[in-house]
Each structure stands twice: as C-alpha cells, then as structure tokens.
Amino acid sequence: MMSGMTIPRQLDPPDIATLGANGAKARFGVAYLRSICSQAGVGFTETSIDEDVLAIDGKIEFAVADARIQVKCTGKFKINGGQTATWPADSHWWSKWHGCKVPVYFVMLVLDPDDQPRWVQHVPEGTLHRAAAFWVRVDQMSESSGIVVPKNQRLTADTLHEWAADVDACFGLQAGGGGGVR
C-alpha cells in the first residue's frame, strides 16, 4: 500500500495526505458505495485494494450470494446533464464479466464539481456529498467500446433490492420469491 503513496506538492503545509489524486477519488467512490450498502444493511467487501487505481473490484454480500461490482469515480461528468455517461472498458474486463456466474454491476460515481475540497460539504442540516452514483449491469451487456451508463439508473438503497432479486434469479428464485420450490 505504501508503494502507491505520493505526496501532493501544492497543498498548504502541513501536508497530511498519503493518497494521490486518483487514489483519493477511488477511495471516495468506495466509501460512497459502502455508505449506500450500509444504509440497506448489506455487506461490501473489496477484492483488491490498490490505492492508486480508479477502478475498484468488490463484492456486495446479499443473503443468498454475492454480486460483483466495479466502481469508478470520475469528475468528468455532470450529475444533471445528458441521458447517459459512457466509460471506456478494457476488452479483458468484458471477458471477465461475461464469465461471471453472478450479476456484475458497473457503478459510476460522478463528482460534481470535481474539486476535492468541495466533495463533502457540512451544511447546517447535515452532510452534503456533491456526488451521485449511476449503475448498469454489465455481465449480460454485449461488448462495445464503452460502457453506457443510463443516468436514470441512480444508485440508492432501493437499487440493492433490485440487485438481490437478480442474484436470486441466478439460483432459480423468480421475482416475488414464490418460484423455484420443488
């Protein structure tokens, strides 16, 4: 972990940072996802920790089985603006996702504005995250040059119920929970 540590040069002293700009963004993306999972009472485990990459691989732990997650955190998009956001995908990502036997979701956390000191604002009513996450299921999506994330798929605690139903379906349980019993 220490190998990825870079010290930003232009912040005011004393400099307390141990994460680079990319690393800080990636951690923020994971922390945001964790907070949504926590709200829904669902566990989350990172499967690889590298402080200086933008993509984080993780597992959402539902009662029946895990779903897989790829989280990206970016400042390149606006929260309100456009119908979709497209992210380039490596071809080896697609082969990994298509081979997965449980659902894989791509989560894009949009930071808007992309200004690190303003990511979290402490307003009188509470804590305001200047961020929104959008998602798309990718294990069943055909390979293309980019991952198209619809902006109408906002990640909330309710989304996790939808994902849990997808996981159940992999094990023969249809939506509504009535099917599959023999």
Binding site: V64, A65, K101, V102, D168, A169, C170, F171, G172, L173, G180, V181, R182
Partner: peptide, 10 residues
C-alpha cells in the same frame, strides 16, 4: 435444495 437456476440452486 430447491430447483436450480443458471448458476446453481437455492
């Protein structure tokens, strides 16, 4: 064991 889906059974 319940009747299986594509990945396995519940």
């Amino acid at each position: 064991e319940q009747s299986p889906g594509p990945t396995g059974a519940l």
